[in-house]
């Protein structure tokens, strides 16, 4: 019984995703997002998020819940959670990064950007193109020119593998 009265005392927020799904979360969890925090401070308890789809929102709520309960003892646990969190496809990562940016959750933003950057790191331009499915829009002449300029700048070694 005690627990139900406790939850009643806790302020709850309703988040609505772009797919019109509604999620109820504790205010203390939600305010980790600057965007939500601003709305809460203006007295809103119903927060429509037209830029965030359900799929990403579920993951982000997971993340927020985990990080809201951060204490000194579960540091390791959160690290493992974060590791799993970013261990996903590029599509998901970009979806999440856009959502995190919209929601202004800077720690999540940084973690996601770092993850994406880590996958570009030390790759050759060809590998980056393949990883992100980018079509090269240079003419062969332009490409040769830039290649030459780059070679003069730094002579680096690239990793040709695609993982």
């Amino acid at each position: 019984m005690a627990s139900t009265t406790e939850t009643k005392q806790k302020k709850m927020l309703i988040l609505k995703s772009a797919d019109n799904d509604e999620f109820e979360i504790e205010e203390s969890v939600g305010v980790q997002s600057e965007t939500i925090k601003n709305l809460v401070e203006d007295g809103f308890t119903f927060v429509p998020l037209p830029n965030v789809y359900t799929k990403a929102l579920i993951k982000i709520i997971d993340y927020l819940k985990k990080h809201a309960n951060k204490t000194d003892s579960n540091d390791e646990e959160i690290k493992t959670f974060d590791k799993d969190f970013v261990n996903t496809t590029f599509d998901d990562l970009f979806e999440l990064v856009s959502a995190a940016n919209y929601l202004h959750i800077s720690c999540l933003m940084n973690m996601l950007c770092q993850t994406i950057a880590d996958r570009i790191k030390d790759k050759s331009p060809e590998a980056v193109r393949k990883i992100f499915h980018i079509n090269c829009d240079y003419t062969p002449e332009e490409e040769a020119k830039i290649r030459k300029a780059n070679a003069q700048a730094f002579e680096g070694q690239f990793d040709e593998s695609l993982d």
């Binding site: 570009i120 790759k123 050759s124 331009p125 980056v128 193109r129 992100f132 980018i134 079509n135 090269c136 829009d137 240079y138 490409e143 830039i146 290649r147 780059n150 700048a153 730094f154 680096g156 690239f158």
Partner: peptide, 8 residues
């Protein structure tokens, strides 16, 4: 610098 070669 490597990124400059990927695309415009």
């Amino acid at each position: 610098v490597a990124c400059t070669l990927v695309c415009k």
